[in-house]
Design a protein around this nucleic acid. Sequence first.
DNA 1: ACATTTTATTGACAAAGTCCATAACTTGAT
DNA 2: ATCAAGTTATGGACTTTGTCAATAAAATGT
Lengths: 140, 140
Amino acid sequence: MMTDDPAGLLRKHGIPVTAQRLAVLRAVSARPHGTADAIAGDVRAEIGTISRQAVYNALGMLAEKGLIRRIQPAGSPARFENRVGDNHHHLICRTCGRTVDVDCAVGETPCLAAADDSGYRIDEAEVIYWGTCPVCLAKR
Amino acid sequence: MMTDDPAGLLRKHGIPVTAQRLAVLRAVSARPHGTADAIAGDVRAEIGTISRQAVYNALGMLAEKGLIRRIQPAGSPARFENRVGDNHHHLICRTCGRTVDVDCAVGETPCLAAADDSGYRIDEAEVIYWGTCPVCLAKR
DNA sequence: ACATTTTATTGACAAAGTCCATAACTTGAT
DNA sequence: ATCAAGTTATGGACTTTGTCAATAAAATGT
């Protein structure tokens, strides 16, 4: 069958399956760009209770294994999304924090080549566009 | 004369001149990419004492008026620099946090044009290159 | 089903920043 | 210079976001 199999997905990445991790993974998928706190809320609505630490553990583990991605915009707690592996970026409203995905403007691996790498070994280029969202624009 | 005139610079931007703001501005210039805490330390070494709130106020005001720039890398407190207006980016070591400037790879205003702006009015494109610095590379 | 290893829970703790009331200072007008 | 009005700094409490550490519980392989 073709239903997504979250448990198998975890096992495939060598992550032991727990109810908490499954619920966190599902919550991140259902609410892209959610904060740890929001995700904890969603998880509690689904499985009743989960400790804050378990949420952080699960998010950290999933991010480390590449199943989800952590983004940490200025002035905001960390956010998480399940869209990974396609090098997309984010567009964030300075007023309300609304966050949307943006495909890369420059091409496949856009800015991954810095003009001068100063001897660093670069593994990721993170791009955040800051601005004002349509809703907040209309409110002015 | 051509000595930089910080007080005049502040007045030019409509910012009342205070000893705290001058010292903060000087500290940011002297120590690019410093955290609020480090800047507070530098300022105390120079003028004896300053409250945490005054440091945050000054940094916020200076950033708002465009005299300094605030950058907020994931997993690090906010950092400040006085190099503004040239759309440069940052290269940060995942291991030790060392931060260096990088000129934009793509040109003048590089990624400022997102592929799809989703109705947002974009005012800044922030690019952070993540990697490992030469020092940390050598230590492995 | 069992032993071992990993994970979850709970509560204390830490870092970074904000809020608020009072005191001090800046500025512009006298 | 001086003074009033508005702004800024100070000090302390507080909030948010996240981590640490010890114990309890659950997952995995045999």
